[in-house]
Write a protein that binds this DNA or RNA. Structure first.
Lengths: 111, 111
DNA sequence: GAAACTAGTTTGCAATACAAACTAGTTTCG
DNA sequence: CGAAACTAGTTTGTATTGCAAACTAGTTTC
């Protein structure tokens, strides 16, 4: 029988409401790391995510534009070092994203 | 203290391994609906997802190209009706995706 | 038989994501 | 010293998306 009408679940539309800034895997990885530490250096982030520098740079810029992280520029001796901190907004967005995902995951062990 | 080294979790890289075909919200919504019924009509799918026709059409084509659904063309009277069925591969991919998400979601009620 | 409607596809455009190439400076070594 | 190689990160160009407006093909209504 072909489904053409009747009781649509609300889940499909909820999926479309996911925060695309967070949903992008590269950025989700970044936010996840940032959420686990006070401040994280660029190169550390690059190593743990495996992203290229360029790619990481643009994703962190996008996250900064969204207000989800802040960039800290400093020097280690005379070498420039860029680090990042997740903001409260970023933490909130990540938490919300997790909640939304939980809501749309079927209960463990469904056919 | 800035994090520059030490014990990287494996999660960040796992996030990057998510199946992008499934990860796109529009397609995840489609697959989710298809997984819940034997066969689903185009227009029904459009209504429950809220996607535009063009958008839905291209996503179903992409899912078909990935082998995750099959398209069934038929006539209802003299009107053409397109329906979709999830394939075994599609079901497997969706299940795997769910497992991966579960693995990377923190335990309920973490700060 | 023109106008309006149904069902879906193609198209063109804007926004990504990504890595190669570049910038700016530092350290090493002949 | 000064060229070569290295560090840290940004900018750029390109290829891929995601999306809806415009189109195709046919059907029903007036």
């Amino acid at each position: 029988m072909v489904k053409t009408g009747s009781h649509p679940s609300a889940i499909p539309k909820a999926i479309l409401d996911l925060d695309r800034i967070v949903h992008e895997p590269a950025r989700l990885a970044v936010l996840t790391v940032l959420a686990s530490a006070e401040e994280v250096a660029f190169l550390f982030l690059q190593r743990v995510t495996g992203l290229s520098k360029g790619n990481l740079s643009s994703h962190t810029q996008k996250l900064e534009a969204a207000g989800y992280l802040e960039t800290v520029k400093a020097f280690q001796g005379r070498i420039p070092v860029t680090s990042f901190r997740i903001t409260e907004e970023g933490r909130t967005a990540l938490r919300l994203y997790h909640q939304q995902l939980r809501a749309l995951l079927p209960k463990e062990g469904k056919p």
